[in-house]
Design a binder for these strands. Sequence first.
DNA 1: AGCAACCCTTAAAGAAGGTTAAGAAATACC
DNA 2: GGTATTTCTTAACCTTCTTTAAGGGTTGCT
Lengths: 202, 202
Amino acid sequence: MTIQKLFANFDNYLPLDEQERDDLSKRVVERRIKRRQFILQENDICRHYTFVAEGCFRKFQVDKKGVEHNLQFAAENDRPAARWIMEIDSFYAEKPSRVYIEAIEPSVILQISKPDLLHLFMHNPKFDRNFRVIIENRFVELENRVLQAISSTAEERYVTFLDQYPNLSQRLPNTQIASYLGITPEFLSKIRKEISKKQVNP
Amino acid sequence: MTIQKLFANFDNYLPLDEQERDDLSKRVVERRIKRRQFILQENDICRHYTFVAEGCFRKFQVDKKGVEHNLQFAAENDRPAARWIMEIDSFYAEKPSRVYIEAIEPSVILQISKPDLLHLFMHNPKFDRNFRVIIENRFVELENRVLQAISSTAEERYVTFLDQYPNLSQRLPNTQIASYLGITPEFLSKIRKEISKKQVNP
DNA sequence: AGCAACCCTTAAAGAAGGTTAAGAAATACC
DNA sequence: GGTATTTCTTAACCTTCTTTAAGGGTTGCT
């Protein structure tokens, strides 16, 4: 069952006991999402924390020129903390979202609303702690990404991406990876050619 | 007194009552730090959460070529969440730090060790919640920075920095700002010239 | 006050990455 | 299973940013 995947996700942090699993499952809603469907659009308020049980999502922002920039991927079988997706700022402050969250594949998600999450936080510190650790892990990843962005060339960033997220590298189109790395698809194509040249001719 | 600045910092989140202030102050250590002094070096384990009461710090990583890359500034009078500085990964996992944290100005800090912080988390959920919110705020900032890095030119990033952190812009040397933006000091110099040209000649 | 260390700027050459356009290959969907 | 859409690649040209080198200005420290 889908909820088991959520329980298993918490096993990476402070595992939940029977009582806590029960509390959590009562406050979670399962949804099936089609490819290309949005679960959050710009100017909407982000009303849920979303856990990706199956499939894959991307979070992106659109600039003044209409170009999309991928901020995050969240996929099944990805690192535990990266299976959570939301706009945290919009969620807590209840202000309009600046990002979109879109399914890249047909997906199944579990969502928790803000009132339900706050209820869990209030009644059991373990939830507070678990979600703090999830954010902390995501924070570490983001800081690594900032470091990469300010210190490495596009080729280095791409190689690191392949190495760090082999799962994502295979299921995502290169256009989406390019957007995540902050380069054009054309330039990524050039990089890929360079890399394959190096591997044939060492 | 120095500790008052820490209490005031928490007033931005869930303010502490008398009892909680007392608990906190017993678990905090004040230190005076000279300019250029390190409070964390590469391969050391980060043993404290640090609150900047006076002065200014930078967190940076050194690449294989020996070039330094600034990941964070933490200064008095800066945004509340940005007055906390640590390497979260090293702190929780007790693994060697990959970053340095160095005082840019003579400073006064308040530090909490991991055992003390965990004690606070255990005995009062308000601390857990406050530190979760601090991390969440830092998370939002970091995501904005990633977006800037993948979507904007160096000039746009610099202008945003001036706008967003007027306080930091004035107290930091341009070399440090360039390192934070991910460009060379020479190119920042060129950008500054371009900008001043535009303002004289619209 | 004076010297060393740091900081800022300029400029020329070159590398990294973007833009435009167009065709070929793969994939989704009915 | 076939067509429309998306995706990937190539190449020529252009912009952004780095490298190297050098000179002048500030700042910190004792």
